[in-house]
């Protein structure tokens, strides 16, 4: 009988041991990931981010565990210097976010993952003691510019614009052309008309006045800004606007071309002749680009839309990044 008791005791002991191993392992695993938010990234057609809103507090780290379920995605937080995290299918990455200012932040996918890639966005609501910083409204709202209105240039250069040639006339120019305010709120075509009307510059040929305008535009930016704009454009814009800016990017190949002035905002009965979305405008078309002021272009980038599928970049790009992009866009014109 003693042997039987021993055997029973052993059976009970081993069964308990097996159960304990699993329970302890599970608990250990759970305690490791408490306070960590698990986010799965999927193509927008399959649901996008599995978590689309996160709340946090200032100076409290937010731990994230990220993975991709299908294709290569990227994770980044707009208007912040948190590093971009690459999400490879089947791999887990951990990252920690730390915000020192309260506010609502947007996180977004950084790698093209389909035509609706830009819809992959979520928000992080950061609460804090100090009041949220309020930025002044963007320039296009301050000026009341209608960014949907057609903005064809009255005049366009008949020959290629040579920026260096414009520098030769720097001393003859009126002082206002160097004001940043003038650059931001005027289209190149406007500035050209204004300079053309100056009696002091009547000796210059039309082409030389264009060279001056191109040079003034170049003076209002820097090579570093153009470089930043170029890389932002390649990563975020070129898939639709085309690598050369012609509006023929791979994502919009099947869409119809935009028809000039097909849509009139003031007429409630006016409808775009093409149902649904159109391609973006050709940025290399001087008629279109030289009639736009930097304020107008940055407004378009901030708000998006315009009858196309353009996303809004306001919550993603900093104002410096938008200025850099705008200055890069003008390089398509010269």
């Amino acid at each position: 009988m003693k042997k039987e008791v021993l055997a029973r005791f052993l059976v009970v002991f081993f069964v308990t041991l097996v159960i304990l191993i699993f329970v302890l392992g599970w608990q250990k695993n759970r305690s490791q990931h408490t306070g960590t938010i698990l986010i799965h990234a999927r193509m927008p057609e399959n649901g996008g981010w599995s978590v689309t809103s996160i709340t946090g507090e200032t100076n409290q780290p937010i731990n994230l565990r990220l993975t991709s379920d299908d294709v290569v995605h990227g994770f980044a937080v707009g208007k912040s210097d948190q590093p971009t995290v690459e999400l490879i299918p089947g791999e887990f990455v951990e990252t920690t976010l730390l915000f020192d200012e309260p506010g609502t932040y947007t996180y977004y996918c950084t790698r093209w993952c389909g035509p609706n890639h830009w819809r992959m966005r979520g928000t992080i609501d950061v609460q804090g003691e100090e009041a949220a910083v309020t930025n002044p409204p963007p320039l296009y709202l301050q000026l009341g510019i209608d960014i949907d209105a057609p903005h064809e240039a009255d005049v366009i250069p008949s020959e290629p614009v040579l920026l260096q040639k414009g520098a030769a006339f720097a001393e003859d120019l009126p002082a206002y052309v160097f004001e940043q305010e003038i650059y931001l709120t005027n289209s190149p075509a406007n500035v050209w008309s204004r300079l053309r009307a100056e009696p002091d510059l009547s000796a210059l040929s039309d082409e030389d006045v264009w060279n001056v305008v191109g040079w003034v535009w170049q003076e209002n930016t820097s090579p570093a800004a153009i470089k930043t704009g170029e890389s932002l454009y390649a990563e975020n814009c070129a898939a639709c606007h085309g690598e050369t800016g012609e509006g023929d990017g791979v994502m919009v190949r099947d869409l119809p071309k935009p028809e000039a002035e097909a849509h009139d905002m003031d007429d409630p009965h006016s409808e775009s002749t093409t149902a649904g979305l159109t391609r973006p405008h050709d940025l290399t078309d001087p008629d279109h680009l030289l009639g736009a002021s930097p304020a107008l272009l940055s407004g378009k980038i901030i708000r998006g839309g315009m009858g196309t599928g353009m996303p809004y970049w306001g919550p993603i790009f900093t104002s410096q990044q938008i200025d850099a992009l705008v200055s890069y866009l003008y390089t398509f014109a010269w």
Binding site: M43, V71, V72, R111, W112, C113, G114, P115, A234, E235, C237, A238, A239, C240, G242, E243, G249, V250, M251, R253
Partner: peptide
């Protein structure tokens, strides 16, 4: 044309990875 793709050739030491628009 849509998502990040790569191209590697068997037997050659050659690989390319392209994002849409780049």
């Amino acid at each position: 044309m849509d998502v990040v793709h790569g191209l590697s050739v068997d037997g050659y030491d050659f690989e390319l990875i392209a994002d849409p628009g780049q």
